[in-house]
């Protein structure tokens, strides 16, 4: 039986703020409110990476947030998609090239859908989510890695070790 078509019908989201001004977060929550009501599409805000399919990231990814973002990303089971919500998450926005930011989510983890706007409008977010669902349907169940991470993995994956080796590469040295 092919279960792929059900992926579109019940996407559960995890929402993570990597140092945003809260504007986009409010808009995301507005999507759940009666006016926009994304639960029509079966979308639930689980708040738990282990049971989520879509990672909604807002904010420009501050240096302190990037390790946490990576941890959360590895905790999510495949297939999964990442949606960068807002100008900051797409490119760094007004914070671009500041000393404490990473200039967008795609510098840390692979991003599938970019939702622009400052702040992104709920309609745009819903649109982005629908696009993300198409991508989710076409994805496989293989492990996804950030492009910069060259860790050599064989299934079954021990994600704690994977995270450590990725971080080592990221920082150039091992950090505990």
């Amino acid at each position: 039986m092919d279960f792929k078509s059900f992926r579109k019908k019940s996407p559960w989201i995890l929402h993570y703020n990597t140092g945003s001004c809260n504007g986009c977060d409010i808009e995301i929550l507005a999507c759940l409110s009666p006016k926009y009501d994304v639960e029509r599409f079966g979308i639930l805000n689980r708040g738990n990476p282990k049971q989520s399919d879509i990672l909604l990231v807002t904010g420009p990814v501050t240096k302190r947030a990037k390790e946490r973002l990576l941890r959360l990303y590895f905790e999510m089971p495949e297939p999964k998609v990442v949606v960068a919500v807002g100008a900051c998450a797409c490119s760094g926005g007004v914070f671009r090239h500041m000393y404490n930011v990473e200039n967008g989510v795609d510098k840390v983890i692979p991003v599938d859908v970019y939702v622009p706007g400052c702040a992104a409008r709920p309609e745009a977010i819903i649109d982005g989510l629908i696009k993300a669902l198409e991508i989710l349907k076409s994805k496989g169940k293989d492990l996804e890695l950030p492009s910069w991470c060259k860790a050599d993995v064989k299934p079954p994956v021990n994600r704690a070790k994977l995270l450590n080796s990725c971080l080592e590469e990221f920082h150039g040295c091992r950090r505990d």
């Binding site: 990476p49 941890r71 905790e75 299934p155 079954p156 704690a160």
Partner: peptide
């Protein structure tokens, strides 16, 4: 369940 991925506990992303 040797064929299954292992993961660490959820701690809100904190180490």
């Amino acid at each position: 369940f040797t064929g299954t991925d292992r993961v660490y506990e959820y701690t809100c992303g904190e180490k």
